[in-house]
Amino acid sequence: MTPTHPPGRVAIPALPKQSPTPPSRTRLEGFNSASPAEAHHTLLTCLNSLRWARRIAAHRPYPDLDSLLAAADEAAYDLTAGDLTEALAGESLPPLPDDVYGAAHTALSAAHAAYETRFGHAFVIYVGDTPANETLDRTLEAIRSRLTNDPEEERVVAAEQLRRLARGRLMGMLRGAGNCAT
């Protein structure tokens, strides 16, 4: 499979900007009252699965953030193999931070290439609860560890990581972090 991204990039989502205040009720109301097309588009920036986005958009309005996140989790758990393939194909691969030294770029690029060759899709990992200075090490460790998985086991792990990414992106969007895409 030919990578669809420049070398040296891995699916490490930018950490959402966290606000010390709870999510704005008006943002949830805005999501609830958005047109179906707008809600669908917004959801696709959080997880590129048409079925997932349609399902969540169709069940609006949500009374609170917890209800929306529960619906997002449930829809993510119900992804079919085809839905998962679609979602994995839609993952963007942001660049590594500029201050990462060259050897780390080389090691991460090599590990990612091995992963993509073995599994046929981009490596995804949720790092939202990882300190920024540990993200690179955690990612490299996770790629190396997950390379030992068989393909079916890795699809389960990747699906869980996608669920966590979608949840984090939804929370970021509703907290006012702007576009929830990475």
Rank of each mutant, 00 (worst) to 15 (best):
A107K: 06
S67P: 00
L68K: 02
H121Q: 06
A113W: 11
P97A: 15
H105I: 03
A71T: 12
D98N: 13
D99L: 00
A107D: 03
L108S: 04
S109V: 07
A110T: 15
A87K: 01
R118D: 05
L79E: 00
A122T: 14
D64L: 01
L69F: 06
R118M: 01
I56G: 10
D66E: 15
W52A: 02
R60F: 14
D99V: 04
H121G: 05
H59G: 12
H112C: 03
A53H: 05
Y77Q: 14
E116S: 04
A58L: 08
D98C: 06
D98S: 15
P61C: 14
R118L: 00
T80H: 04
E116Y: 03
T117L: 12
A70D: 13
E86Q: 09
A72M: 13
L79D: 01
S67I: 05
A76M: 12
T106F: 10
Y62C: 11
A104K: 10
G90S: 10
E116N: 03
R55N: 15
G128A: 05
G128H: 06
H59N: 13
R54C: 02
V100W: 11
D64Y: 02
P95V: 05
I125W: 11
F123I: 01
L93H: 08
Y62P: 12
Y101K: 12
E91R: 15
P94H: 03
D78R: 15
L79K: 02
H105Y: 09
A114R: 07
G128I: 01
P97M: 07
P97V: 13
S67Q: 08
R60W: 13
L65I: 09
G120K: 05
D66C: 06
D73R: 15
G90Q: 11
Y101E: 13
P94S: 08
L69K: 13
Y62L: 11
Y101F: 08
A87P: 01
Y126E: 04
H112P: 00
V100P: 07
G120N: 00
A87Q: 07
A114K: 05
H121P: 05
L50T: 15
A53I: 04
R118F: 04
A75S: 14
I125N: 11
V127T: 07
S109I: 08
F123E: 03
G90F: 12
P94L: 07
H59W: 10
E91G: 07
A76Q: 11
I125D: 07
R51P: 00
A103I: 09
A87W: 02
A57T: 03
R118V: 00
F123Y: 09
A103N: 10
T106W: 10
P97N: 08
A75I: 11
D99Y: 06
I125A: 14
G90A: 12
H59R: 15
A53Q: 00
A104I: 08
I56S: 06
L96M: 01
R118I: 04
S109L: 10
Y101R: 13
D64Q: 07
T85N: 02
A53F: 03
L79M: 14
A103R: 11
A53C: 03
A110Q: 15
V124C: 15
A71L: 08
P61G: 14
I56D: 09
T117H: 14
A53L: 04
A104N: 07
A110P: 12
F119P: 02
D66Y: 09
Y115M: 05
H121K: 04
A104E: 08
A89P: 00
I56H: 07
R55W: 12
T85A: 10
L65S: 01
R118N: 00
